[in-house]
């Protein structure tokens, strides 16, 4: 029973950062209609921001995380301007270009920091006990930060004018531009937020995962599983699917092993693709 409860707590931590990553990927897809294969590498870049600023240059942890968020957001803007905007008419081309970008980011990380895993000393050492299960402050911090960020994003999308524009573009880009919404401006905002969410997830979890230049691969696989299960284009679906997948994955890892958990996750995605390609929660199909 203790093990079950402890595993549930671990799953909540996994769900929190997975949700950040998947929501970012969905935002980019929603507005630009392109699947960003380099999303896992944006996570990796965020983690290396913390490796560099916090572990090597001894800046405060929170400042390093904020820097990671902004830096990766800017990388996202760069991607939008150089690749996704010229390839707006060609979503497959955008996807393939993002694979090229993935290779570039990976190699830059290898050149800058080496192939070996980076080590980030934990900023806090403490832990709390919740009904017998142990939760380190570091993990608790990730969970709280993820909830706050997602809540802020939700408020931004529902309340602000930009949020309206963003949702309008996701629904029907042509109609939105007829209403005077600037497609470029909206794409920039979506790309910045989407990339920054991946970056901040990497930055927050850097002390817990020992970042390596090749960490993006497992991240993008996870993100794909979540957005397919949740339904591409559905932000709420992505959050629910992240929680669902995190629980499945953590429990299978604990009671069997990690490789089996990955196989189960992929099989889950495969089953959803076969049975219900719009995802479990995505009613809308993007034209």
């Amino acid at each position: 029973m203790d093990l079950l409860w402890q595993t549930a707590i671990n799953a909540m931590y996994a769900a929190s950062y997975m949700a950040l990553i998947a929501v970012g990927l969905v935002m980019i897809f929603g507005v630009m209609g392109v699947i960003n294969f380099a999303h896992g590498e944006l996570y990796m870049v965020g983690a290396y921001c913390v490796v560099f600023l916090y572990a090597q240059e001894k800046f405060p942890f929170l400042l390093s995380v904020a820097a990671g968020l902004i830096f990766v957001g800017i990388v996202g803007l760069l991607m939008e301007r150089t690749m996704f905007r010229p390839l707006r008419k060609n979503p497959l081309g955008g996807l393939i270009a993002s694979i090229g970008f993935l290779l570039i980011l990976q190699t830059l990380a290898v050149l800058g920091f080496g192939r070996r895993m980076g080590h980030v000393p934990p900023p806090t050492q403490g832990k709390i006990e919740i009904f017998g299960a142990i939760l380190t402050y570091q993990r608790l911090f990730v969970i709280v930060a993820a909830i706050l960020l997602l809540a802020a994003l939700w408020a931004f999308l529902k309340r602000s004018k930009f949020g309206w524009a963003l949702r309008a573009c996701a629904q029907d880009a042509e109609a939105a531009s007829l209403q005077g919404i600037s497609m470029n401006q909206t794409a920039r905002i979506a790309m910045f937020i989407g990339a920054a969410l991946a970056g901040v997830a990497g930055a927050l979890t850097a002390p817990l995962v020992s970042p390596s230049p090749y960490i993006g691969h497992s991240i993008i696989v996870t993100a794909f599983i979540i957005i397919i299960v949740g339904g591409i284009g559905s932000l709420e679906g992505a959050v629910i699917a992240a929680v669902l997948y995190a629980f499945v994955h953590t429990f299978v890892t604990t009671f069997f092993d990690g490789v089996i958990a990955n196989i189960v996750g992929l099989a889950l995605m495969f089953a959803v693709l076969v049975v219900r390609p719009t995802g479990l929660f995505g009613a809308r199909e993007r034209a």
């Binding site: 699947i35 979503p91 497959l92 996807l95 696989v221 794909f224 599983i225 397919i228 092993d257 490789v259 089996i260 990955n262 196989i263 992929l266 099989a267 995605m269 495969f270 693709l273 076969v274 390609p277």
Partner: peptide, 27 residues
């Protein structure tokens, strides 16, 4: 299963199928 999908879904589906096979070799 794969040819129930098209375009992007096929891409991801073939990716998933390939990864499953690869993980079976690994496991």
């Amino acid at each position: 299963p794969l040819f129930r999908m098209k375009g992007f879904y096929f891409l991801i589906g073939s990716f998933a199928a390939g990864e499953i096979i690869r993980l079976i070799w690994k496991r």
